[in-house]
Amino acid sequence: MYLAVKGGEAAIDATHKLLSETRRGNVDVPELDCVQLREQMSLLIARVMNEGALYDPDLAALALKQAQGDVIEAAFLLRAYRTTLSRFGSSLPLDTAKMHIRRRVSATFKDLPGGQVLGSTYDYTHRLFDFSLTASGDRAEATVAPAPLSETMPRVLDILGAEDLIESETPEDGDPAPEDITRDPISFPAERAARLQSLTRGDEGFLLGLAYSVQRGYGHNHPFAGEIRVGDAAVCFAPEELGFEIELGDITLTECQMINQFTGSKNAPPQFTRGYGLVFGHNERKAMSMAVVDRALKTDKFGETPAYPAQQQEFVLYHSDAVEAAGFLEHLKLPHYVDFQGELELVRRMRAEQGGEPE
């Protein structure tokens, strides 16, 4: 495919060298290292890990450095590397109720079991430049030791569940293993497990736009942020040869549960419904967008007729993948000489037949 590209191998080699020089920039300026990116660009690292479908802050930092900060290119690098890794099995389901909480807020209940934990957030900043950040070198600042938190915090939505005011979510009969979209392509209608995986890997900006559309012009649905929690959860694995589970380590996650209105149907009483988002790292905007879109896609469960873009499974899931979308768009930069010449001759011939410019 695109054999014409081979004719410019020398030029391609030269552009690779130029790319390396461009990436480095002014050699008089100290070079960024991957540790700096990992520690000081953690929100960006989280986005790359999500869209790259691999939890590894060090590799995400390397990908960002290699891609000059291009998130989609970095995610592409991470996904490509992921395909080379061996599979040893599947981890056990995460218990996010036992997360070591860094941040936990709810917009629906002021007084929560365990309390509101504001943590690290830009929510209360004034969006004014801090010009002191332009200074180089370490800035020593006093730190306040956080108050000890309960090891487990009850889920906010369980408050509504206790009164049977929100849809229940229970495993299907037999609790079948979820589909793995990295091994098998999505088929439609897609199961919710496949949809959630696809949304987690989806482009943050695209999902944000879809979530906005649900609240605004298409859907007129105003969800409530039932709970947003950021923290570290243990990843456990049960090797067959051992017969018991072992803890592999902790990963940082952001979880969001949205509460939506539902007027009821023939089969269900008026109640609240759920939207769910779970992503790598500290990434609240992505988790919230995912939760809003997840609820929009649950039309089959509630007997709703898909009426707007965010409710269309194929539209959402096929177009939310930034890596695939970028590849399809950017292939337009590759040679299309023969195709275009055919189109050009066709237009000239039609113009001549209509009495326009002669052939």
Rank of each mutant, 00 (worst) to 15 (best):
R127E: 09
D28T: 10
V144F: 12
Q215M: 15
V105P: 00
A75H: 04
S136N: 15
V235C: 04
L149V: 12
L160S: 03
A211W: 10
K286T: 05
G209C: 06
R82L: 10
E247D: 06
Q68K: 14
A67T: 03
F237K: 03
E163G: 05
I251K: 08
Y276N: 07
L92V: 05
L59N: 01
E73R: 15
E330F: 09
S168N: 11
A80K: 14
H319P: 02
A67R: 03
E255D: 12
E51M: 09
T84Q: 15
A296I: 13
E141K: 13
A147T: 13
S187D: 04
L77K: 01
K17D: 07
P189N: 07
R274Y: 14
E31G: 08
L346E: 13
Q354T: 03
A162P: 03
S136F: 15
V347M: 11
E247P: 05
L3D: 12
L59C: 02
L85H: 05
G303W: 11
R24G: 01
L278H: 00
A268Y: 13
D33V: 05
V144P: 04
G275A: 12
V48S: 01
P185C: 07
A211G: 00
D56I: 11
E9S: 12
D33S: 10
F340Y: 14
S86E: 15
I228D: 01
V27K: 09
P185A: 14
N26M: 10
G137V: 11
A80N: 14
S168I: 08
A97S: 09
G202T: 05
D13H: 07
P189M: 05
M49V: 00
V293A: 02
Y122Q: 06
R192C: 06
L149R: 14
P269Q: 13
P270D: 09
Q36L: 14
G25T: 08
F262A: 09
P223E: 03
T83V: 13
F280S: 02
T305G: 03
G219V: 01
V27G: 06
D175N: 12
N283L: 11
V230T: 02
F340N: 11
G281P: 04
D175K: 05
L317I: 14
G356T: 06
I251N: 03
E245Q: 15
T108S: 00
E357K: 10
P93A: 07
E330K: 11
A147M: 13
P154A: 12
V316T: 04
L62V: 15
A291K: 03
R103T: 00
Y318K: 13
A211R: 04
T15G: 00
G205T: 02
S265E: 04
L94S: 01
Q116V: 02
A268L: 15
R127C: 04
N50S: 06
E21D: 07
D123L: 10
A211Q: 04
T299C: 10
R87P: 02
M288C: 12
A287F: 02
I251Y: 08
P239S: 06
H16G: 03
R139H: 14
S320K: 00
H331E: 13
E247F: 06
E245D: 15
T125Y: 04
E51H: 01
D180E: 02
L207H: 08
R348Y: 05
A307I: 08
Y276D: 06
L157A: 08
Q313I: 06
R87G: 08
L207Q: 09
P113G: 00
A135F: 14
R47F: 02
P146N: 13
V316Q: 02
R285V: 05
A135L: 15
G355W: 09
M1F: 11
F224Q: 07
L32T: 09
D180Q: 00
